[in-house]
Design a protein around this nucleic acid. Structure first.
Length: 118
RNA sequence: UAAACAAAUUUGAGUGGUCGCCUCUCACCCGCCUCAGGCGGGUGCGGGGAGGAAAGUCCGAGCACCACGGAAAAUCGCAGCCGGUAACACCGGGCCACGACGAAACCUAAUAAGAUCGUCGGAGGGAAAGUGCCACAGAGACGAUACUAUCCCGUACCUUUUUGUUUCAAAAAAGUGCGGGGGAAAGGUGAAAAGCCCGCUUCAGGCGGGACAUUCCCAAAAGUUUUCCUUCACGGAAAACAAGCGGGAAAGUGGGUAAACCCUGUGAGGUGCAAGGCGGGAUGGAAAGAUUUAUUUUCCUCCAAAUGUAAAUAAAUUUUCCCGCUGCUGGAGUUGUAAACGCGUCCGCCUCGUGCGGGCUCCAAACAACCAAGAUAGAUGACCACAUUUUUCCGCUUUCGGCGGAGAAAACAAAACUCGGCUUAUGAUAACUCGUUUAAGAG
RNA sequence: GCGGGUGUCGUAUAAGGGCUAUUACCACAGCCUUCCAAGCUGUUGAUACGGGUUCGAGUCCCGUCACCCGCU
């Protein structure tokens, strides 16, 4: 789990989902915007259609936040972003290590600024 | 007594370490307002951090706002009795000619049924207010009907017999066919047959009596509640409610189905913490709708412009939500010890009873201790090591099997204002109770 | 969080409490054709699950499960 200030504030979520830029990794749909902080903020949203029980849904969200905490927690960045991660259906059979690889390679180390310029 | 199986109740998933999350108290630091102090942010020590079902949202409440002069109707529930309770569709007790299964006395040639007893279950008012439905089969399924059998009358004169006669004709009786009528005591059908039983009688209807159910009255009563008296305690008295049981009277009706409509009694105003209150409203986001202004496009008109119509975009205006605090965590609370009464159950004793004494479970006065979840796109996770169980693969040994290594799994499932129940999911391990089976022993 | 609704062969649909549960497409088999298609004939296959009421439930009542739709 990451602290409250490292998570995207609640009132920005609707705005990011509607107006933010978007791309997909192997396991996630990602929507993001720039922010004026010196660190990136994250939020994981899991659909009730993906996992029906509340226990499984809470566990997946905690694992995602745990990966972000160990790999990216409050890292200093010049151009930080607010990111929302939405898991896709093919995340279900994956182990913790496989999810960790996908987030590290495709999301945290991705140069978001280039895609904006393009 | 032991073992196995099954059910109910209680318990609710190992240990340690690293990093990390939410919240509370205290201390320190920073910033702002003000100078008692308050607000915001940060750091550190310490405390706390999901369940028996948090679930389904099926009932009952608290709490909050809105509406409201009263009554009735409609709609939606509930349904024998007493009590527990804030309340309930929950729980406990006892009742029932309510149902199922079992036992066996009496009766009987024997069986069945039946009064009785035991166990389990029961959404258990009313079918004598009315309406509807009851397939197939069957005569008939509820204002009864007329198939078979049966009785009466008429008729045919086909058959037989008798009387009579030469014969024919005629008459009577029986049988058969046809028509009309009487009529429910017999049958087979069916889940169910005009309610049941007994006696007398008729060609057949018919008559009388009994038992049960219904209503009213009377007497007593399981049980419960309240009050009073007395006592160390046991206890006693009175009043109220009282299902069912018994007696008497009336009525003179009787198939089933009300989880069919309905009738009777009884209850319910609506919305739900996203209720509601306070603050903020600077910027921004979402939704809704309208107005104004500007631009662009289309249409009408047209030489063109302006005006008008429709659409899109932008800006402004309005409302609601998004934000912070509150409601918000202490409540009909939980745990432990446990008196007395009482229900249940087991054991012993005798005078064998609605008996006495004792043990256990439940219930529970009183006392003590504790209250430490309050998140808000929603706080408990990840990794490592060890231990237990199950399982897969590989290697060694090899009769079942054992040893070593690697991997996987270890229930159902997570608060969202708070309680009381119900229902459903799961059941490692342990405890206790009841039941069944087997084995051994005793009578 | 709150509320409403629906479950019938593989698919889409019928069925006043009274059947061996209807019809069409699909599937399978046969006929027809040189072969395929079309056509004809036949077969298989279902009341979501568990109880209750009733002589008798797809239907009535209760409880689960799955799915769908609203409010927010």
């Amino acid at each position: 789990m990451i602290s409250t200030k490292s998570r995207v504030p609640r009132q920005l979520i609707a705005y990011i989902l509607k107006k933010g830029n978007s791309y997909q990794s192997d396991l996630f749909i990602v929507r993001y915007t720039k922010n004026d902080k010196h660190f990136s903020r994250y939020r994981a949203i899991i659909s009730k259609k993906l996992l029906r029980g509340a226990v499984d849904r809470n566990k997946l969200r905690r694992q995602i936040y745990e990966i972000i905490r160990t790999k990216d927690a409050e890292r200093e960045e010049k151009h930080a972003h607010d990111l929302i991660l939405i898991p896709k259906k093919n995340i279900l059979p994956r182990t913790f290590r496989q999810i960790e690889d996908d987030i590290t390679k495709n999301i945290i180390n991705r140069p978001h600024d280039q895609s904006e310029q393009a």
